[in-house]
Design a protein around this nucleic acid. Structure first.
Length: 883
RNA sequence: GGGAGUUUAGCUCAGCUGGUUUAGAGCAUCUGCCUUACAAGCAGAGGGUCGGGGGUUCGAAUCCCUCAACUCCCACCA
């Protein structure tokens, strides 16, 4: 077999992904094994893969592959989300490019356009995931707008409505004037903006001033809303505005007479203590309006331009009007002054335009009862959050949860299943036929037809469908009609899922709501563990985003470093919940690791075995040692996984392979150039390599499969993917400790060579004074290139370099190569260090408080430190004397 | 405005139920090597008074208080 000198990922990755697919190794069906399930956080159907997806899906794949190798029936369900606002916005933009406005099309035409767009772009992201190596069950791809899934969404709506948990009402909502829809509180991002506070004069009608110039001054950031003013409010205990009580003021420009009202809500200290009240355009004003029975005058159109009701500036944009009205007020002598003022303004998460608080008729879900079990689950650890620090935030949100506005004034999505009767009443039903039946019953009018009913024009919030994801991907018939008695096998087997991997930003949007849906319709929690990833940031700490253009293209990265390399790069610095400061250097490290693995394999692969050769002692020793190293590693990695510490598990594996296996084990057993290796050692080494590939596979599936397939002849269809994962086992600590002494001695001898420019090829002699494990001397001899190892001290004593490991003294005679002054300096420095150390230990031991209070073990340890230290000092002093 | 979190080597992070030599890892840096698996490499080395201050304790990176800086979440003061 020809094996190239450099690892070439592209070819190998495509080959094995196709092989896994051809043999349906990702597919899962319910059976008698323990299930392990993950549902993918469905990306936007028309989205493209970004770094956040890369991180998120790498983690999921690691978990799924490991579970699969542990003998579980692993199922990772992929799919996409219809993402109503985002997708609709894209379709609108695409049409705009063709000179078509959304309003030019009928609803049906527009929806057909959106479907076409979805068919064309949908699923691209799933193809990209395959490049990453994602072992999803591609037979189970789902979509939140699939027919079956959609029926589930509608049934859920009807069910909630029948339970009295959905209501319709006029409320102040967050209006997005660009997307022309209401959005939920969670979709509003508050940003601080530098604005202006305008002080505007409202003339007092009852003024007794001779000149008639008696004003009350109101401070506002939104002068363009004054046409909607229906009162001016003051605090009842505000002495400086007491004169205004019971008066009437005149709204500037439009000359509407409005009353002065009194309310404790008013902050006396802010501005002038007078608040203009615009019930239609501010949430607080709305509440004040309700309380004081004020009229709400909506002066805006849906697109943020001024409406007929404003009387002035009709048709102009709200921000243009702001500028203009300030000029007009000033010209009329009604602008007292302006101040710069920083305040928070809500922006739409999707379109980034300023949200307009707006009164409108919307649908809401009552959240109180739904939230209870979802909160409880997290608090009593029925569902575990990793890391747990997000629990507080979660609790706070759930305890103060508000009703959920679920209607969106969009066409792309699940249409609200409510039908209006000619008389304005409405019915909620799963379909038009049922709606008609209900309508007839309601009106007692048998001659009603479907054309008499008008379905609500709004769509449901995207999250109103994705909160059913862990249920609906297995059984879209949930919630059942009550008549359906067949339990769904898939739902029974796979639900609840095991781990959910997602970003903390959607803890409320999605995670919390899935929990609610799980308890409401599937009888329990939807997942046992929630792993929250961090946010992928660039080197400057900025969040990676399309708009900033600071995100590398994932597919380019994969081309450059290989999927395994990129996977490793993503995972190296991403402990759960920590942001990931992404740096391409990490992928480079991943690629280098692949290359290292590849070359280790080439070395092993190139060895010729000679069965007549006996196994050298050093190789046998290395085998004994490395067997223990592997056992310990498997235990450590198990422990890391149990705590969801994937980065640490991978780092442990990295060091295991690179340092322990390559730098030590392979170097020890490596036969002299051009010579054969004994059969036993080669067999053992292959076995170790096999074991290492199993540990590595969840992280780096491609290279591990490639090598595993080369290690031994395999049957068609056989794959490392389904081989057992090594499990934690006991290991011999003392064996590891004995090797450690020898390893340190070897390193020390190498340092001696380096400091004195002695070539590694030149053999040296070594004297050992004190306790040492002679069993490992052959290994020491090979690795340090020693001609002999002799107990005791060399004759004559001088011209010796020495070092200590523990309390054992090692001496290397160097003859003329040694510079006695340098040696003395080195020993002096060492002596000083040891003396300081012993002094500090002694100090501790002379503290009566310590001796009396510290546990015996701790004191014994300190005594040993002292004894060891003193022994070392003695050895160094003797060495100094002989020089 | 409220809440949570972070602060340990140049960078990214472990360590934090207080005591396993005078705090660890990876990367980066420096030195010497193209040694026949790998220069995407090998062998070495240097680098931190654990954000500042105070306290508890025989003993603090680890517990408490305080100050500072940064981050995130929540929040409608015009």
């Amino acid at each position: 077999m020809e094996v190239s000198a450099k690892y070439n990922p592209a070819e190998i990755e495509d080959k094995w992904y196709a092989y896994w697919m051809d043999h349906r190794l990702f597919h899962s069906e319910p059976d008698e094994r323990e299930p392990y399930t993950i549902v993918i956080p469905p990306p936007n159907v028309t989205g493209v893969l970004h770094m956040g997806h890369m991180l998120n899906n790498t983690i999921q794949d690691v978990l799924v592959r490991r579970a699969r190798m542990q003998g579980k029936n692993a199922c990772w369900v992929p799919g996409t989300d219809h993402a109503s606002i985002a997708t609709e916005a894209r379709v609108v933009a695409k049409l705009a490019g063709e000179g078509i406005r959304k309003s030019d099309l009928s609803r049906e035409q527009f929806v057909e356009q959106a479907w076409e767009w979805t068919r064309k772009h949908g699923g691209i992201i799933l193809e990209q995931l395959k490049k990453l190596g994602a072992s999803c069950d591609w037979d189970r791809v789902n979509f939140t707008m699939n027919e079956a899934y959609s029926r589930s969404v509608i049934r859920v709506f009807v069910d909630l409505f029948n339970k009295g948990k959905i209501y319709r009402g006029v409320r102040m909502v967050n209006w997005d004037p660009k997307a022309l829809t209401a959005v939920s509180d969670e979709e509003v991002v508050h940003k601080e903006v530098q604005g202006t506070l305008y002080y505007i004069r409202y003339k007092i009608k009852e003024s007794t001033s001779a000149t008639g110039d008696d004003y009350c001054v109101v401070a506002t950031t939104r002068p363009e809303t004054i046409m909607g003013d229906t009162a001016v409010a003051i605090h009842p205990n505000d002495p400086k505005n007491a004169r205004l009580r019971g008066k009437t003021v005149i709204v500037p420009l439009i000359n509407r007479e409005v009353p002065i009202i009194e309310d404790e809500y008013i902050d006396i200290e802010f501005g002038t203590g007078c608040l203009k009240v615009t019930p239609a355009h501010d949430v607080n004003d709305y509440l004040l309006g309700e309380k004081h029975c004020l009229e709400a005058i909506d002066v805006f159109n849906d697109d943020g331009t001024l409406s007929e009701k404003a009387q002035l500036y009709v048709g102009q944009d709200r921000f243009a009007v702001r500028e203009q009205i300030v000029k007009d007020l000033d010209a009329a002598g009604l602008l007292e002054k302006t101040e710069r003022y920083a305040h928070n303004v809500g922006f739409s998460e999707r379109t980034d335009v300023a949200i307009e608080p707006k009164l409108s008729m919307q649908w809401f879900v009552k959240m109180g009862e739904l939230a209870e079990p979802a909160l409880e689950a997290m608090m009593n650890n029925e569902v575990m959050l990793h890391p747990a620090k997000f629990k507080n935030t979660y609790r706070h949100w759930m305890e103060t949860i508000k009703d959920w506005c679920i209607s969106r004034q969009l066409w792309w999505g699940h249409r609200i299943p409510a039908w209006y009767l000619p008389d304005g009443r409405f019915v909620v039903a799963a379909d038009a036929a049922d709606a008609l039946k209900q309508a007839k019953a309601l009106t007692k009018n048998k001659s009603l037809t479907e054309t008499d009913l008008q379905q609500d024009g709004d769509c449901l919030d995207t999250w109103f469908s994705s909160w059913l994801w862990p249920i609906a991907v297995f059984d879209p018939e949930v919630p059942g009609s009550g008549e359906d008695v067949d339990p769904n096998i898939d739902l029974q087997y796979y639900y609840p899922t095991s781990d959910l991997v997602t970003a903390p930003e959607i803890l409320f949007f999605w995670v919390a709501r899935m929990l609610m849906a799980g308890y409401e319709w599937a009888g329990g929690y939807p997942f046992k563990n929630v792993y929250l990833t961090g946010i992928v940031r660039d080197k400057a700490g900025r969040k990676m985003s399309k708009s900033l253009g600071n995100s590398p293209d994932p597919l380019t990265l994969i081309e450059r470093y290989g999927a395994d390399g990129v996977r490793m790069g993503m995972l190296l610095t991403s402990p759960a919940g920590n942001d990931l400061p992404f740096d391409e250097a990490l992928c480079e490290q991943g690629r280098n690791f692949c290359n290292k693995i590849w070359n280790a394999f080439r070395l092993l692969n190139g060895w010729q075995a000679d069965s007549s050769l006996p196994q050298p002692a050093h190789s046998a020793q290395a085998g004994e040692w490395f067997r223990q190293v592997l056992r310990k590693a498997a235990a450590d990695i198990d422990d890391d996984f149990s705590k969801y510490r994937l980065s640490e598990a991978l780092m442990a594996l990295y060091k295991l392979f690179w340092d322990d296996f390559c730098a030590w084990y392979l170097e020890i057993i490596k036969p002299p150039a051009g010579q054969a290796i004994d059969q036993k050692t080669l067999d053992t080494a292959r076995l170790f390599f096999d074991y290492l590939m199993r540990l590595l596979h969840p992280f780096m599936p491609f290279i591990s499969e490639e090598i595993w397939q080369h290690l031994n002849p395999r049957r068609d269809g056989e794959s490392l993917m389904t081989q057992p994962q090594p499990y934690a086992d006991s290991f011999d600590d003392s064996c590891l400790a004995r090797f450690e002494v020898i390893r340190q001695a070897i390193a020390a001898i190498r340092t001696i060579r380096q400091m004195r420019s002695i070539a590694p090829k030149e053999p040296l002699a070594l004297y050992v004074k004190g306790e040492a494990d002679a069993h490992l001397f052959p290994l020491l001899q090979k690795m340090a290139n020693l001609s002999v190892i002799v107990p005791g001290t060399p004759e004559g004593g001088c011209n010796v370099a020495s070092f200590l490991v523990g309390t054992t003294e090692f001496l290397v005679p160097l003859g003329a190569k040694i510079n006695l002054d340098d040696e003395r300096l080195k020993l002096q420095a060492d002596l000083e260090y040891q003396q300081k150390f012993v002094a500090s230990v002694k100090h501790k031991l002379s503290n009566t408080g310590f001796v009396q209070n510290a546990p015996e073990q701790v004191i014994a340890l300190e005594r040993k430190k002292q004894a060891d230290g003193e022994a070392r000092i003695k050895a160094i002093e003797e060495q100094l004397k002989t020089l």
